[in-house]
Amino acid sequence: MTDLATPSKVTFAEPPSSPDRRVRRTGTAARRVRSAVTSALKHAGLVLFGFVMLYPLLWMLASSIKPNALIFREPGLIPSDVDLSNYTDGWSALLHPFSRYLINSAIVVLGCVLGNLVSCSLAAYAFARLRFRGRNFWFAIMLMTIMLPIHVIIVPQYVMFSRLEWINTFLPLIVPKLLATDAFFIFLMVQFFRGIPRELDEAARIDGAGHVRIYWQIMMPLALPALATTAIFTFIWAWNDFFSQLIFLTKPDMYTVPIALRTFVDSTGESSWGALFAMSIVSLIPVFLVFLFGQKYLVKGIATTGIK
């Protein structure tokens, strides 16, 4: 609807007509031109801004196709020498082909996404829609759990998971998500659930629906943007999470992408920067695709479902 070509086409197609009609038509055309210009400006702005946002990625892409030695000597955007060996070398540089780390990361990430979607939405429903004793207290406790830096929690956690013999499995990374320990998402969904008009569940209650049905048949579909947000964020954060994966996974065949990427760089000796950039690009692709395709669900909320 903001097609740049439309106004001129309309003008050309115009048959000769009476003066007063023409005035009106010109008025419309002017408005169209104006809106086209605004739209073009807006796009220009967005593109320019997009370039600023994209620069780092372009730079990383450029660096990933430079020979290792040129990355620092010629830091500009246009490579003087193109060399794809960073990709082939990087793929097989570590003990396993890089696909192994991608698969491991995918397993962890899918487990986390599923866990967070189910467990956090259940907890959020209780906080947003149910009345029970100590609700304020538990809500405060919930927020408190995300206020301690991970660095002091990780050692006790390691000890605990070590006792359970969960070290070097994906369990310490996935099970906590199944048990709603990511309070961030509970809070997120509480805020969204509370934005859903209560008339809807009141109506359902009158029809005899219980909380389980309201949760499943009304809240979940209506909170699609919140669920999509949760899924996307969980995906990205788990995909990029270095610290806990480093600590809990000890054998190379269980390593995930972030750990694998770090092992290209050694501050005390030689680093394979080219391979690091190349594999970083490779590991960005799935995340970017998830975001690109997932983001349309962000906008399918109450606004686009049948209920109005």
């Binding site: 990780i154 050692v155 390691y158 070590s162 070290i167 092992t263």
Partner: peptide
Amino acid sequence: VVPDFTDWDGYWNKLSTTVAAGD
């Protein structure tokens, strides 16, 4: 022999954590 490797910074916090847990 099971390998266990990482970068310099990660190495020291992983090592101290595993020592703390007796691993």
